[in-house]
Amino acid sequence: MIYALGRLDFSWDRFVTGLDNGARFIGRMLPPRIAQPDSLAKGLIESLEIAILASSMGILLSLPIGLFAARNLMPVWATWPARAIIAAARSFHPVIVAIIFVKAVGFGALAGICALVVASIGFIGKLFAEAIEEISLKQVEAVRATGASFMNVILFGVLPQVFGRFIGFATYQLDSNLRNSTMVGIVGAGGIGGTLFSAFQRFDYDFVAAILLSIIAMIMAGEVLATWVRGVFLEKGKVDGE
């Protein structure tokens, strides 16, 4: 660790100067000021759109991918490719994936959406697969013994056993995508991050403060939304799903 600290040129002096700079920086952020309400609103809405679209598509794609990756239900020819997709999707941080997509599809929200879809598959695809691998196969076998089709076995034998956990993972992913959607803008993949970055570059620190506060507000609103979604589904789940 000492070696690492040395390599990073970390010293008490720099730390103190840093604190000093930080204090001056915070001083310039106060009071927050909404310099460009239009670009703030546009950025926030775009982030929200990126998060919601990426979460829905990511979850939809993760369902089959997670199912195919479950080794207790699927043959090797299905689990192998599904696991490869999940592993690939997990390899890079969403920001790196976003950079790649900006190169591929150009600047803007589409790149951000694609990046977060990939992140979602990597994260909940894996969790879905693990949840399915932990189910009781006796229940599945009983449903299969009735002559049910593969889809019906999934619907009645597998889904009820994992439904509650899936909802948990999905809302967690929505939350995490909301956070990440504020970041992909920094590399030009749409959302509030872009607005934040340019405010930084203009040394517009009071606007930066306003943006940061609105991001906090948005994340909190997202938390409330996620709790609500969990409530709705798990309540319904008591009757026919969970």
């Binding site: 009735t146 049910a148 089709s149 076995v153 009820p160």
Partner: peptide
């Protein structure tokens, strides 16, 4: 081997899944 998280009625109806 009942599907634990389903209702009794749903478990019975699962006999019709074929």
């Amino acid at each position: 081997n009942l599907v634990e998280r389903l209702s009794v009625m749903e478990n019975l109806l699962s006999g019709r899944l074929g």
